[in-house]
Protein backbone atom coordinates (compact mmCIF):
# COMPACT_ATOMS: atom_id res chain seq x y z
CA UNK A 1 0.00 0.00 0.00
CA UNK A 2 2.83 2.29 -0.36
CA UNK A 3 1.27 4.06 -3.26
CA UNK A 4 -2.03 4.90 -1.64
CA UNK A 5 -2.51 7.66 0.83
CA UNK A 6 -5.78 6.84 2.46
CA UNK A 7 -4.72 3.88 4.58
CA UNK A 8 -2.10 5.98 6.28
CA UNK A 9 -4.53 8.79 6.82
CA UNK A 10 -7.07 6.41 8.25
CA UNK A 11 -4.52 4.94 10.61
CA UNK A 12 -3.55 8.41 11.67
CA UNK A 13 -7.17 9.23 12.32
CA UNK A 14 -7.63 6.08 14.37
CA UNK A 15 -4.60 6.81 16.49
CA UNK A 16 -5.71 10.37 16.96
CA UNK A 17 -9.15 9.30 18.13
CA UNK A 18 -7.78 6.70 20.49
CA UNK A 19 -5.53 9.30 21.99
CA UNK A 20 -8.42 11.76 22.26
CA UNK A 21 -10.54 9.26 24.09
CA UNK A 22 -7.76 8.52 26.48
CA UNK A 23 -7.11 12.21 27.09
CA UNK A 24 -10.72 12.86 27.89
CA UNK A 25 -11.44 9.82 29.95
CA UNK A 26 -8.42 8.69 31.94
CA UNK A 27 -8.03 9.85 35.46
CA UNK A 28 -4.32 9.59 35.99
CA UNK A 29 -2.59 12.73 34.81
CA UNK A 30 0.35 10.80 33.41
CA UNK A 31 -1.92 8.78 31.25
CA UNK A 32 -3.57 11.92 29.99
CA UNK A 33 -0.20 13.28 28.97
CA UNK A 34 0.59 10.02 27.32
CA UNK A 35 -2.64 10.10 25.37
CA UNK A 36 -1.79 13.56 24.17
CA UNK A 37 1.52 12.14 22.94
CA UNK A 38 -0.42 9.55 21.04
CA UNK A 39 -2.53 12.21 19.40
CA UNK A 40 0.55 14.07 18.32
CA UNK A 41 1.99 10.94 16.87
CA UNK A 42 -1.07 10.34 14.82
CA UNK A 43 -0.66 13.80 13.35
CA UNK A 44 2.94 13.04 12.66
CA UNK A 45 1.96 10.02 10.62
CA UNK A 46 -0.24 12.22 8.52
CA UNK A 47 2.57 14.63 7.90
CA UNK A 48 5.03 11.98 6.87
CA UNK A 49 2.51 10.28 4.63
CA UNK A 50 1.73 13.50 2.88
CA UNK A 51 5.38 14.25 2.47
CA UNK A 52 5.73 11.07 0.45
CA UNK A 53 2.41 10.78 -1.34
CA UNK A 54 0.77 14.12 -1.17
CA UNK A 55 0.02 16.69 -3.84
CA UNK A 56 3.56 18.02 -3.94
CA UNK A 57 5.81 15.46 -2.32
CA UNK A 58 8.84 16.96 -0.66
CA UNK A 59 10.78 16.69 2.52
CA UNK A 60 8.88 19.49 4.17
CA UNK A 61 6.51 17.09 5.80
CA UNK A 62 9.30 15.19 7.47
CA UNK A 63 11.00 18.32 8.69
CA UNK A 64 7.77 19.48 10.10
CA UNK A 65 7.22 16.20 11.84
CA UNK A 66 10.60 16.68 13.49
CA UNK A 67 9.38 19.88 14.90
CA UNK A 68 6.20 18.23 16.10
CA UNK A 69 8.13 15.56 17.92
CA UNK A 70 10.22 18.22 19.58
CA UNK A 71 7.26 20.14 20.75
CA UNK A 72 5.68 16.96 22.05
CA UNK A 73 8.73 16.14 24.08
CA UNK A 74 8.96 19.63 25.55
CA UNK A 75 5.35 19.58 26.45
CA UNK A 76 5.67 16.19 28.10
CA UNK A 77 8.53 17.43 30.22
CA UNK A 78 6.74 20.52 31.38
CA UNK A 79 3.60 18.51 32.00
CA UNK A 80 5.38 16.06 34.26
CA UNK A 81 7.01 18.93 36.12
CA UNK A 82 3.61 20.48 36.71
CA UNK A 83 2.25 17.22 37.91
CA UNK A 84 5.05 16.83 40.40
CA UNK A 85 4.46 20.32 41.71
CA UNK A 86 0.75 19.62 42.07
CA UNK A 87 1.43 16.32 43.72
CA UNK A 88 3.46 18.05 46.33
CA UNK A 89 0.44 20.23 47.14
CA UNK A 90 -2.25 17.62 47.20
CA UNK A 91 -0.95 14.05 47.13
CA UNK A 92 -3.01 12.92 44.23
CA UNK A 93 -2.41 12.56 40.54
CA UNK A 94 -6.07 12.22 39.76
CA UNK A 95 -7.13 14.75 37.17
CA UNK A 96 -10.71 14.85 38.34
CA UNK A 97 -9.59 16.07 41.74
CA UNK A 98 -7.86 19.10 40.29
CA UNK A 99 -10.97 21.21 39.95
CA UNK A 100 -10.31 24.34 41.94
CA UNK A 101 -10.06 26.72 39.04
CA UNK A 102 -13.74 27.31 38.84
CA UNK A 103 -16.30 29.75 40.15
Amino acid sequence: MSGILSPYLTLGAILFCIGLFGALTKRNAIIVLLSIELMLNGVNLNLVAFSKMGVAPSLTGQVFSLFTITVAAAEAAVGVALLIALYRNKPTSDVSEMDELKH
Binding site: A23, L24, T25, V32, V95, S96, M98, D99, E100, L101, K102, H103
Partner: peptide
Amino acid sequence: QNGKVQTYGL
Protein backbone atom coordinates in the same frame (compact mmCIF):
# COMPACT_ATOMS: atom_id res chain seq x y z
CA GLN B 1 -18.54 24.18 35.24
CA ASN B 2 -16.96 21.70 37.55
CA GLY B 3 -13.42 22.80 37.17
CA LYS B 4 -12.33 19.57 35.53
CA VAL B 5 -10.35 19.92 32.39
CA GLN B 6 -11.64 16.74 30.94
CA THR B 7 -15.19 17.99 31.09
CA TYR B 8 -14.23 21.12 29.28
CA GLY B 9 -12.35 19.05 26.74
CA LEU B 10 -15.36 16.85 26.22
